[in-house]
Write a protein that binds this DNA or RNA. Structure first.
Lengths: 225, 225
DNA sequence: CGGTATCCGCAAAGATACTG
DNA sequence: CAGTATCTTTGCGGATACCG
């Protein structure tokens, strides 16, 4: 067989793991959730990955119909990778996986990386449609690291990279503080700098429920990590 | 650090992969979906796994609060592994992952393993509550490989290993044929041997929609697999 | 039966240098 | 920038030996 090792089981779970179970594969998919990216951009979003490994993963994902490689129109001689329809169907699954994993993300980020774009994905994972019923607004989030725009269209959520021309609300902060605020944790009063619709700003922790009721952390078997 | 390598990212998805992203880990969880199991039973459900790897995975899963090791009462000096609450919360996620993976499980099982218990998990993944609204029944599935019982209680599904005392319907066949039948595929007329409620039998492909509308297979980039 | 420990060979992953 | 090539290291699979 052309591929590496397979579990060789007639089971949907095993098949899924044959496709995206290898190291880094699912994180590559995560990087593409907000839209197409170039090789180097992927690399920056995956600190620690070796270039040959990224290269191999992209080839496998392309071969298996999860990612497409597309050349940008002539002026830019560059290529981008994007999710296929099959790949996009995986997004809700990894969002659910992320919600599950986030519950055991105790305040352990001593030196853990936290990129703004992961936050854009997390906003989708923790989005509460009921809390945003009928709401339409444009919100810009700006970090040293990058920026993205959240559009609410009558309760429907859309997250796109970069800043929009107009925004009803703009928040300029660092990822750590935004997470703390959305989780209703104690954050320094001057940590976030909301500009625009103040009422909308106050509603954010309800709309993006980082501090949800399903966040009870598991009890680890070893007290000393 | 005591653990192997971590992605070291403050991201729920990365955290989940730190916990269950290593080879075999998620399949160990799958094996425990229907209930507690002993080491050797796990081994049989995971053809190809090395005993030391299984041992290591179980230790990691236990340390991370996903699996518990419990000693059976005195007569049996044996130990079983079972999912913790945190581990059980992962089940709907891997069922969704399995549905996604199953879509690209083209009729490719030349020599792929297919254990009856995986089917018990798949029944949960493809269960359609609307098609079983208000239905209460007990169905036994029997294979050379093993058996399990499906209980529908006013539309609520429960799958347990082994056969119940009484069943409204009993199906004795092999896994391959049952999958074919539930997917509304062409199966030999004498492949399944239903005993009992014939109407209930006919409803099974609607209740367990293996041939769902979301099963469009992806187009692979390479024609020759 | 229910595992743990050790060795060996291989394939995947990490690090880094290098090229179109 | 977008990868490929090379080298080293680590994890995995398989076998087997050992112990409660």
């Amino acid at each position: 067989m052309v591929n590496g090792r397979s579990y060789r089981q007639s089971c949907g779970i095993a098949r899924a793991l044959d496709l995206v179970g290898e190291r880094w594969a699912l994180l590559v998919v995560r990087e593409l959730v907000l839209g197409p990216k170039r090789f180097t951009d992927l690399r920056h979003g995956l600190p620690g990955i070796a270039t040959n490994v990224l290269s191999q993963r992209l080839q496998q994902l392309e071969r298996d119909g999860i990612v497409t490689r597309r050349l940008l129109p002539p002026p830019a001689a560059s290529a981008v990778y994007e999710l296929t329809e099959y790949g996009r169907d995986l997004v809700p699954v990894i969002l659910a996986l992320g919600r599950w994993g986030a519950r055991s993300l105790g305040s352990q980020p001593p030196d853990y990386a936290l990129r703004s774009e992961w936050l854009g994905v997390a906003l989708q994972a923790f989005y509460q449609p009921e809390a945003a019923k009928g709401l339409s607004a444009t919100i810009g989030f700006e970090f040293d690291d990058g920026a993205f725009t959240v559009r609410l269209d009558r309760g429907r959520l859309e997250v796109t990279p970069g800043l929009a021309d107009h925004a009803d609300l703009t928040v300029r902060t660092d990822p750590q503080m935004l997470v703390g605020f959305l989780a209703r944790g104690p954050v320094p009063a001057d940590a976030l700098r909301p500009e625009g619709d103040r009422d909308l700003f106050e509603r954010l922790p309800a709309i993006f429920a980082f501090g949800g009721d399903r966040l009870t952390p598991p009890r680890s078997a070893t007290a000393s990590g």
